[in-house]
Design a protein around this nucleic acid. Structure first.
Length: 182
DNA sequence: CGTTTTTGACCGGCGC
DNA sequence: GCGCCGGTCAAAAACG
């Protein structure tokens, strides 16, 4: 059961310019709308790989990574260890605030300094019991005004805040539609 | 008093 | 093997 292909959605990044504009609104709305999807837990569960899941652009500036040709010196194993990479999404936001409110509740579980970066990187995990979606937040070494938030995994539960705002509306809808039943 | 943050320890992968 | 690096754990502190 291990060799499900995971190369779906390797990396997607958006750039959001201003924090107080429509694009910011779209950003947040996107974040709130994504989760209502439900997945079998095994899709979200195993994140055992400790390989870096950060976009290359966030690592120390290094020369172009050649091609996919990896060390073919001698016998290249070609084992292609198929690191079960979980879909990751990175958001860049120009903001003074490190934590943008995406509607979920997160518990911080670590913070590390980043090489070549004055600002640390913070690690968060979704607090919902069976949901181990993770995200990390850091500032760009160059241009510390930009906050990069990288999400890993897909929430297997609805977003509380979404429901909070949605419930009154649904109630209202229900109420209004009750008239058409008469 | 339950939950979250802080922070050094710990651990696995990788390059030398 | 050794040390660096990135990621996680967990105990204690902080918080509300």
């Amino acid at each position: 059961m291990d060799d499900r292909e995971e190369d779906i959605n390797p990396m997607l990044s958006l750039d959001v310019e201003n924090n107080n504009t429509f694009s910011s609104f779209v950003d947040k709305t996107l974040m709130m709308m994504m989760p209502p999807l439900t997945f079998p837990s095994e899709v979200v569960a195993p994140s055992s790989s400790s390989t870096s899941w950060y976009p290359e652009s966030l690592h120390a500036p290094q020369p172009a990574p050649e091609n996919d040709q990896i060390g073919d010196k001698g016998k290249n194993k070609e084992k292609e260890k198929r690191s079960r990479r979980v879909p990751r999404i990175a958001f860049q936001t120009r903001s003074d605030d490190d934590v943008l409110d995406d509607g979920y509740r997160w518990r911080k579980y670590g913070q590390k300094s980043v090489k070549n970066n004055a600002h640390p990187r913070s690690y968060y995990r979704c607090t919902y019991h069976t949901c181990n979606v993770k995200k990390q937040v850091q500032r760009l070494a160059k241009d510390p005004n930009v906050v990069v938030t990288t999400y890993e995994g897909i929430h297997n539960h609805p977003c509380e805040k979404l429901m909070e705002t949605l419930n009154p509306l649904l109630r209202q809808l229900q109420f209004l539609s009750s008239f058409s039943n008469l």
